[in-house]
Design a protein around this nucleic acid. Structure first.
Lengths: 219, 219
DNA sequence: CCGATTCGATAACACCGTTCTTTATAACGA
DNA sequence: TCGTTATAAAGAACGGTGTTATCGAATCGG
């Protein structure tokens, strides 16, 4: 006839607990038993609602991309499109540093065989398109030479992601380098690399840094 | 009086087995029991020789940096220092893709508290200095404006590492983008960002790609 | 050659993800 | 409204993990 329905609130609680444990205590704390216990359920709940721990973590990943997208849209669009891209860059770094464990699972390398679900691809692509749009403005009303905004966004993304993962790996702290200055140089050289005048690029960088500081996104 | 001495050959075998398992089957296969069994020892050997699985993996990491340094030095130094930097960039990507699991543990983010050992810092810094030296040549005899080679190397490293980790995460394969073209654009925009003429940068990129293809370092 | 001392193999402990078994509950047909 | 039934959810169990305690065996100095 008609079976018993699963309680959606349990799934929500499991997801929230998993996200909190990941953020506060790191990936080692996200175990099926721990998540289920703190959510007031048994380990079976993980499997009835998500199927496996991997899919629970995938749900956390999706939620992470949603919040990441909101953070990347927070810096306002102004009359300086390059500073807007750079401000988004600082927001990017801020998210990676403050949500380090979440950022890690979001961008972890997957084995070559496994392919991500459609939902995951869409949620991650949405955040990427947020960058693409800001770069388009640099080519349209701004000083950059942007033949293909997607290709340009890939370059910027590579530099931003690279710096953040290197900073998270402990490089700057280990050898006494200033990560803010280092990241700023990445943004600066990218702007120059897209054809902008070095002085103007430096000015946009300063503006973006001021904006980021005011938003509490520097350190 | 005089105790029994540990057998150094066991430590070497454990290290070799761990490195092989990591490369062939990924991090999940590197368990104390599996490593010890395949090395013809008991799990206790891991603890007498390394102290813990983490330290065994740290030893694998050190060995990885040693091999990584050799790979990065393979591209010859020619009369085109920019192409030499780019050729090293292709060697970098080739290592990251062919030794993906090793590359992953080498650059994985560490929790904020734990600091790496002196040996680890030195072995990783050595590979970074290999890049610094090539970039110095671009500023000395070449067309780049390099005020500080270390800062410049950090920018190049960020872009290279960022692209490789993104490619390893499956982005390009997932959305049907050409990773070689994408990485090439990273190197190109970096060169322009360091003040080089775009046409000359494109020429250096073509040269580096040809050299990389001949060395079997493209795909 | 003896005995102190450490290596290393075995087994145990506490944890993990996952599955099996069982029970209780919720939703429909009558 | 009640009985049926399929499923959710709880708990124990299975095979794994890193690590450690126990203990026999091997080795070097005296």
């Amino acid at each position: 006839m008609s079976p018993r329905r699963p309680d959606p609130a349990v799934a929500v609680r499991l997801l929230e607990v998993a996200a909190r444990l990941l953020a506060v205590e790191g990936p080692a704390a996200v175990s099926a038993r721990r998540v289920a216990t703190e959510a007031g359920a048994s380990t079976m709940a993980v499997y009835t609602h998500f199927g496996s721990m991997d899919e629970l973590l995938a749900a956390v990943r999706r939620e992470g991309f949603r919040r990441f997208g909101l953070e990347l849209e927070r810096p306002a669009l102004t009359g300086d499109p390059v500073a807007d891209v750079m401000a988004q860059g600082w927001a990017y770094r801020h998210f990676a540093l403050t949500e380090r464990h979440l950022y890690d699972v979001m961008f972890r390398a997957r084995p070559p065989g496994v392919v991500e679900h459609q939902d995951d691809a869409e949620s991650s692509m949405a955040t990427f398109l947020s960058l693409v749009r800001r770069i388009e403005r640099c080519g349209e009303v701004g000083p950059w030479l942007v033949a293909d905004a997607v290709s340009a966004a890939e370059v910027v993304w590579s530099a931003a992601h690279g710096h953040c993962t290197i900073e998270l790996s402990g490089y700057h702290a280990g050898v006494g380098r200033d990560p803010v200055a280092s990241y700023g140089r990445c943004l600066l050289h990218l702007a120059i690399g897209f054809g902008q005048d070095p002085a103007a690029a430096a000015k946009a960088l300063t503006r973006s840094r001021t904006r980021a500081r005011r938003s509490g996104q520097l350190d």
